[in-house]
């Protein structure tokens, strides 16, 4: 039915239009966003936990790294990180690979403005299929998100560790637990309840930072919405005027829906974590 779009009218036109490959890309890019969230969340928690532990470390240099990391990210807008971190990481990775894999090449890596590494040091290789390039870009984006939001999570978790009542920890000492046991069996498990409000806020911030993915060159919902919404001349199979307003309204609804679902989930989590605890 959709073979010749110029003959279509009304409902059929819309049916065909909304099922073009480009629209399918828009729909699947929803999963890109969800996939990012699914992968980045454990990374954020791990980095946050690591950062919080580092901040409390007995070793001064480790403590400084922890403090430096968490306060740095607080001071700088996330967008600046996103514009900067992926390019920097990419070049660092390629430079290391260049040094390891092409140690015989003597040409400098920086030639004027050009950043040149040997062919086999490229990430991914030039000949690699497009999905590998996409996946690599996606990994860089995940790292950038994890670094930024990990610092916020470290702040939240650090605060939660401090909020665990002293008496609980002293009780551990009283029954003869080692420092390590106290941390793994009492301090860390108790902390989650206090961290939950902060982490749920962080999740909401993360949700609303995902449209910035397209700045990192990822073909996410915003990319496809802009692409599809832009005016199409008669050169295209489905010409239309500037429809970006419509597409962005749809995005707005999508994000409101995500927020709404998240609120429901966190309400339930709060009940579970709060169970059996006297307040």
């Amino acid at each position: 039915m959709c073979a010749d779009p110029s003959t279509l009218e009304g409902l059929n036109w819309w049916l065909c239009y909304l099922t073009t490959v480009k629209h399918m890309n828009l729909y699947t890019s929803v999963f890109t966003v969800l996939l990012l969230l699914a992968i980045v969340t454990p990374c954020i928690l791990a980095l946050g936990f690591g950062g919080a532990v580092a901040k409390r470390s007995a070793l001064m240099p480790v403590r400084w790294v922890g403090m430096g990391y968490t306060s740095m990210v607080r001071g700088v807008p996330d967008i600046v990180f996103f514009m900067f971190v992926p390019i920097a990481l990419d070049q660092v990775f390629e430079m290391i690979r260049h040094k390891v894999l092409c140690s015989d090449v003597t040409d400098p890596i920086w030639q004027g403005n050009d950043f040149v590494v040997c062919d086999i040091a490229k990430l991914p290789l030039n000949a690699a299929p497009q999905w590998q390039h996409d996946a690599y870009g996606f990994i860089l984006a995940v790292i950038a998100f994890a670094i930024v939001f990990g610092a916020f999570a470290a702040n939240v978790i650090d605060g939660a560790l401090k909020a665990v009542p002293k008496g609980q920890l002293e009780a551990g000492e009283a029954v003869g637990m080692t420092k390590r046991q106290i941390f793994t069996r009492i301090h860390a498990p108790q902390m989650w309840r206090y961290a939950l409000p902060g982490l749920s806020n962080l999740w909401m911030i993360l949700l609303k930072a995902t449209p910035l993915l397209f700045l990192l060159g990822i073909e996410d919902v915003v990319y496809w919405a802009r692409e599809l919404g832009g005016a199409k001349t008669s050169r295209f199979a489905y010409p239309h005027t500037d429809w970006r307003l419509g597409y962005f309204l749809a995005l707005l609804v999508f994000y409101l829906f995500l927020t709404w679902i998240s609120e429901k989930v966190f309400d339930r989590l709060k009940l579970r974590f709060g169970a059996g605890v006297a307040i």
Partner: peptide, 18 residues
């Protein structure tokens, strides 16, 4: 509160400009 907290600022800018 729900609408402005629940949607990305990025998209709010775009919609308001339009």
């Amino acid at each position: 509160i729900f609408v402005f907290r629940g949607s990305p600022l990025f998209i709010q800018f775009f919609l308001f400009y339009e």
